[in-house]
Write a protein that binds this DNA or RNA. Structure first.
Lengths: 204, 204
DNA sequence: CCTATTAAATGAACATCGTTCATAAAATCG
DNA sequence: CGATTTTATGAACGATGTTCATTTAATAGG
C-alpha cells in the first residue's frame, strides 16, 4: 500500500459519498487492504485528513500569469484556493478541520504573502491580510459546499421553512435579502467579498 | 427533561471537555436521564448542535449604542459574533457545522443587513456584504479556536515543527511572516481583516 | 376520585466507528 | 540461503449514534 494512492483513494471516496461516509474501514476496503494496515501509514484519521488537505492544495501556488496587476494576482490566488476546495466534495470541511503545514499549504501562503508585500505593505500587514483572505475563502467555501450538500437532500423543505420563518414584520431587511441569500450565484458572492477586501488594500 | 436545560448543559459540557467529547450518552448522564430520552427531544445529534448554535447567538442582535457611525456599527456587530463564538470552547466549529435558521441567527443577520443598507448599498450588495463579514468572522474564529486547542496540547511541538519547515530559501516571504503567523494577537488579526472589509465599503 | 388517553422515560439492543496488537507473511540484504 | 526488518493480517476492545418495545408518569373527563 502506498501513501499517495491511499490519499487519492480517500479523496475519491469523499467525492463519491461525502466526508461523513469516509471511514477507515471503507478506505481499507477500497485499497484491498485490512483496516490495521492503514494505521502503519497514518497514525490517526486526523493524519489522513491532513494529508488529504495537503493534496487538495497541489498546484495552488503555481506561477502566476504575466502582466497581472497585484490586485488581479490576489484575486487569482484567492480564486485558486476556492477552486481547490471546491474540486472535492466537502473539501472546505476537510481543509478547515486540519492544520496542515505541508509544502503545498506553505508555498501557497508564501506566494500570497509575497504578492501582498509588493503592495507597499509591511510584513505584518501583508501577513494579516493573507490570513484575512484565507479565512474569508474558507468561510465562504464552507457555506457554499454546505449549500451544495443541502441541495442534494432537503433543499425545498429547508427553503420553504426559511421562507415561512421570514416574517417581514420581524425581519424587515431579511425579507428584502431573501432572494440574494437563497441565490446560488456563489461566484457572485465570492467576487463581491473578495473585491471588498482587495479594494480596501493600499489605496492607489 | 426540558429542552433549554439540555442545550445549556450540552454547551457546558463542550466548554469543559471540547466538542469531540460531547456525546449523547455523556449529555444524558449530565441530565440524569437515559440516552433514549434525548431522542424524544432532538431527532438527531445534528439537531442538538443546531440548537446549541442558535443559543450561542442569543443577544447578538441586541440594540446598538447610539451615536455610532455605520462603520462602527458594523465593527460592533462583527465583534459580537466573534465574541459569541469565542464564549464557548469550539464555538466556531459548532456554529460552522450547522445551518441554523432560528430567531437569534435570523435577527442577527437581519440587523447586520439593516445597518449595511443604510450605507447607500443596494439590497443585493448589502446582503452579499453581510455574507462576506459573517464568513470572515467564522473563518477567523475557526482558526483562532483551533490555535487555542493546539495551545492546550502540542503547541511547542507544532511550533518548532513549523519553524523547522520554514526554510527561508524555499519560503522567503513566510520566513518574514513567521512572527505574525505564530502570534497570538488574534484581536489584532481580527481588527485588521475587518477594517479591510469595512474600508472597502461605499466610499462615502 | 377514578379512569382513559397522551406524553415521557427506560433499558436493552444494533450496527458501525477509531484504534490496538499479537501474529503471520513478505521483502530486503549481507 | 538465512537473518532481519518491513508490511499486512485478523480479531478484538471500547465507544458512538440511533432505534424501539415496554414501562412509568402526567393529564384531562365524567
Amino acid at each position: 500500500m502506498a501513501v499517495p494512492e491511499a490519499v487519492a483513494t480517500a479523496l475519491r471516496l469523499v467525492d463519491e459519498d461525502g466526508l461523513d461516509s469516509l471511514t477507515m474501514r471503507r478506505l481499507a476496503a477500497a485499497l484491498d487492504v485490512q483496516v490495521g494496515t492503514l494505521y502503519r501509514h497514518f497514525a490517526t484519521k486526523q493524519t489522513l485528513l491532513a494529508a488529504m488537505a495537503e493534496e487538495m492544495l497541489a498546484g495552488c501556488a503555481g506561477p502566476l500569469p504575466d502582466g497581472l496587476t497585484w490586485r488581479e494576482q490576489i484575486t487569482e490566488l484567492a480564486g485558486r484556493l476556492r477552486t481547490a476546495l471546491l474540486r472535492h466534495r466537502d473539501g472546505a470541511r476537510v481543509y478547515a478541520g486540519t492544520h496542515s503545514v505541508g509544502p503545498n499549504t506553505l508555498s501557497y501562503t508564501d506566494t500570497l504573502v509575497g504578492v501582498l508585500r509588493e503592495t507597499c505593505l509591511s510584513p505584518e500587514a501583508a501577513t494579516r491580510t493573507a490570513l484575512t483572505i484565507v479565512h474569508f475563502v474558507i468561510g465562504h467555501t464552507l457555506e457554499e459546499q454546505a449549500a451544495q450538500a443541502l441541495a442534494e437532500s432537503d433543499l425545498p423543505a429547508t427553503l420553504t421553512l426559511l421562507h415561512a420563518a421570514l416574517d417581514p414584520d420581524v425581519y424587515p431587511h431579511l425579507a428584502a435579502a431573501e432572494a440574494t441569500l437563497t441565490s446560488t450565484d456563489f461566484v457572485g458572492h465570492f467576487t463581491h467579498g473578495l473585491n471588498l477586501i482587495v479594494k480596501g488594500l493600499a489605496g492607489d
